[in-house]
Design a protein around this nucleic acid. Structure first.
Length: 436
RNA sequence: GCGGAAGUACCCAAGUGGCCGAAGGGGCUCCCCUGCUAAGGGAGUAGACGUCUAAACCGCGUGCGAGGGUUCAAAUCCCUCCUUCCGCGCCA
């Protein structure tokens, strides 16, 4: 969400930004916003004048009523003033209706106008124009065949998709044995990794109110992603970012307390409508997964610096588990409407011989902060909007695909990288086991 | 979940229809007085949001948990909801 003042002062900049994102159908929204803003302010001004008048006259009634005890003539005068106020009442309630109507419409329009993207974002209509920035580690292709990830998991008796389908349907999983333990090991390792970077570990609510949902994500994302609890104003979180950023709703943070650097764990629930749908056979795109996340709330001037730091943490984390990765920058057309700049960290899949998304790092600028009214109080007493960022540390079980494929040996065993061994009871390898 | 109580500014707290945007106290800030300091005196202390403005000040509007309603006028009356506290119940 952008500032309405920006549209007042420089509508062309906002239009240009919409064009850069290949959303020309939204161009009329700019003029619509200007019009609604004008109407809204006119209504506010007139209503405000009427209220001022009413307040004055009502006080006068009060005074006259007081005097009426000694001088009955004053009572009549009071009645006359009452009638005056009542006369304006109709116009005032009409204006109040208009205020509400215009404000609501304006808000709806403003929610659709995308955040101003950073000047450095590459321009392109869709994800095919995303830009590979840099690779980390050698994308190796072994001389033996790498099975599909669920087959690798099955070779350790580590997954049951059939059972999950019976219980919850497609898009769920049972992880078992060493694979389940590995899943938790990766999360625990990522947690400690971030604690080591000075982040505070947080376990947030896994559900949230509708008002928070609207603040942290766009309407289209909400429809495509969120599960609603029947009969309650509660949604299952799609990522801990939602409840982590939501925590700051209506808060004014002392400047000295910044930056807030948090690493949160949560299960994540997603409908995955649209996108490419839920995968039939595997744990790449599913309705439920777990994630260790990074969250930063900081001063506006520092958000780009944090953005750079955050995605590098992901790279460092994956490299420490011997997984080759690359940084892929999101182009303008692929950037969600709330984001200023974003990149994916993609892990190498030796089986498919291509990179696939495992982390997503975003600088939201003041977009979430404006929607949720997250402000900072400066030393000079002024308040201003914070910036928010988020990034994935690890999101298994998808992340396990990269892990298993890259650490698989010709004999079918999987090497446990040293950093994970303390979380696996010292185990150095996962060995194939007979089918149960 | 049931019963009871309560939500007023940084904190405590008075206020049941009219100069109440809100007494009083504490705290905090500034000033003065006094060399003996768990001292005295004075002043200030809604923040926020909206509007107005080139911007700011000022002004105006909103604001007493939230949202509605009654009224010329609501902290005060009515309705709904939320939160907290105390019992009871249930439960990892």
């Amino acid at each position: 969400m952008i500032d309405i003042k920006l549209i007042r002062e420089d509508p062309e900049l906002v239009r240009e930004n919409i064009r850069k994102k290949f959303q020309d159908e939204k161009l009329p929204l700019v003029d619509r916003a200007l019009e609604l803003d004008r109407l809204n302010r006119a209504a506010i001004n007139e209503a405000s004048d009427l209220r001022a008048k009413r307040n004055q006259l009502s006080k006068k009634v009060g005074m006259l009523m007081g005097q009426a005890k000694k001088d009955p003539a004053k009572a009549e005068e009071a009645e006359a003033v009452k009638a005056q106020v009542k006369a304006d009442g109709e116009r005032l309630s009409e204006l109040e209706g208009l205020e509400e109507k215009y404000a609501a419409e304006l808000h709806a329009v403003m929610m659709k106008i995308p955040q101003i993207i950073d000047a450095s974002v590459p321009i392109g209509p869709d994800d095919s124009h995303n830009v590979e920035v840099q690779r980390f580690g050698e994308p190796a292709v072994p001389d033996f065949e790498i099975p599909y990830h669920t087959d690798i998991m099955e070779s350790f008796n580590g997954i049951d998709l059939d059972g999950a389908r019976r219980v919850a349907g497609n898009g769920f999983y049972y992880l078992m044995g060493d694979v389940a333990r590995l899943h938790e090991a990766v999360l625990a390792y990522a947690r400690d990794f971030m604690i080591g970077k000075g982040f505070t570990y947080v376990i947030p609510p896994f559900m949230m109110h509708g008002a928070i949902v609207e603040g942290v994500m766009s309407q289209s994302d909400m429809d495509a992603m969120m599960y609603k609890i029947e009969g309650e104003d509660l949604y299952l979180i799609g990522t801990s970012e939602h409840s982590m950023i939501g925590r700051y709703i209506d808060q004014i943070l002392p400047e000295a307390s910044l930056p807030h650097t948090l690493t949160s764990y949560s299960p994540c629930f997603r409908k995955e409508k649209g996108a490419h749908g839920v995968e039939e056979r595997g744990v790449y795109r599913i309705h439920q997964f777990e994630k260790q996340e990074m969250i930063v709330v900081c001063k506006p001037a520092e958000s780009m610096e944090w953005y750079e730091r955050l995605w590098r943490y992901s790279v460092e984390l994956f490299r420490s588990m011997d997984i080759p990765v690359r940084q892929l920058e999101c182009c303008s057309g692929d950037l969600a409407d709330l984001k200023v700049k974003s990149c994916d960290i993609e892990a190498w899949s030796p089986r498919q011989q291509k990179y696939f998304e495992v982390c997503s790092c975003s600088n939201l600028g003041d977009a979430q902060a404006r929607r949720l009214r997250i402000r900072i109080k400066g030393e000079d007493g002024r308040t201003y909007l914070a910036h928010t960022l988020n990034n994935t540390c690890v999101a298994p079980p998808r992340m396990l695909i990269a892990f298993l494929e890259n650490n698989l040996s010709a004999d079918g065993s999987v090497r446990i990288p040293e950093v994970l061994r303390p979380y696996m009871g010292g185990k150095e390898r996962l060995e194939r086991c007979p089918k149960v």
